[in-house]
């Protein structure tokens, strides 16, 4: 079976420093894969190469077998990849509902309408998506006033709007209280399973990672140093070394 996502030898250097140095992995459809590693390990750079934000110096990115290396983010989105950001990015001057509606309008390629109010488009679909992430009761609020956790949920709803096969979530629970983290990831996992969506996420909170990930990849110094089932990774001495400090392995 073709993997939902395949990274093949990704390399990115900033100046002389190789932030990502030959990373390869695959992600099966419906799988939840966590990418972990200490600060500066290259997680965000790696992530941004996958979603089109950064062009890799070498290596390829394949989506369901198709080479998407170097495509801009919007093209990658069109291929069925939803994204959430480490620092949330939403349309602050719009309501929650309108935010989701924008994603739906974009998915339907109906962005150039000049006359019919946008408010008449995709309202039911947007509400359904909000319901899926538990935000239905906040649909009418301006998203500038939302709590941080709710913004993350909103992002998830927007990410789901194009019926993605793959979700890329960069630190989906950063800045949230522990209880909220678990809740959000539980919802994400439920949504992903229900839709057969593959999820790649980075995460600092090890409890979240070991509770929800099917598989874990560990990045350090731009290289993958371990990967496998959560229990195996947790037991891996190299991982312990990286996380618990000490000299170089």
């Amino acid at each position: 079976m073709t993997p939902a996502l395949a990274a093949e030898g990704l390399v990115k250097a900033w100046g002389g420093l190789r932030a990502v140095d030959g990373v390869s992995f695959t992600l099966a459809p419906g799988e939840m894969l966590a990418l972990i590693g200490p600060n500066g390990a290259g997680k965000s750079t790696c992530f941004n190469m996958l979603n089109g934000q950064i062009r890799p110096d070498a290596g390829r990115v394949r989506l369901a077998g198709r080479d998407v290396t170097g495509l801009p983010p919007r093209a990658i989105w069109r291929l069925g990849v939803g994204r959430t950001f480490q620092v949330t990015a939403t349309f602050a001057s719009m309501t929650v509902l309108d935010n989701v509606r924008m994603a739906l309008l974009s998915h339907a390629r109906r962005l150039l309408g000049l006359w019919r109010p946008a408010a008449r488009e995709f309202t039911a679909e947007a509400e359904a998506l909000l319901t899926r992430v538990g935000m239905a009761d906040q649909a009418g609020r301006p998203c500038g006033v939302l709590a941080y956790g709710d913004l993350k949920r909103l992002e998830l709803a927007m990410a789901l709007a194009n019926q993605p096969h793959l979700l890329l979530m960069d630190e989906p629970t950063a800045g949230m209280a522990p209880a909220e983290r678990m809740a959000l990831m539980a919802e994400t996992a439920a949504v992903a399973r229900a839709g057969g969506i593959a999820v790649l996420f980075t995460e600092h909170d090890m409890d979240v990672v070991f509770t929800h990930a099917d598989r874990v990849l560990v990045l350090d110094g731009g290289r993958l140093i371990a990967g496998g089932a959560p229990e195996a990774v947790r037991a891996d001495p190299r991982v312990r070394q990286v996380y618990l400090g000490g000299g170089p392995a």
Binding site: P73, F85, A89, F91, L105, S106, L111, N162
Partner: peptide, 30 residues
């Protein structure tokens, strides 16, 4: 027409890219 356009999908898309270019690109808006 201009006023309608502001509330129509095109005006909303314009507003979307103004609010957050990052997010706009991430949901497929050029």
């Amino acid at each position: 027409l201009l006023r309608r356009a502001i509330h129509a999908p095109f005006g909303m898309a314009l507003r979307a890219q103004r609010d957050s270019g990052l997010r706009a690109e991430a949901i497929g808006i050029d």
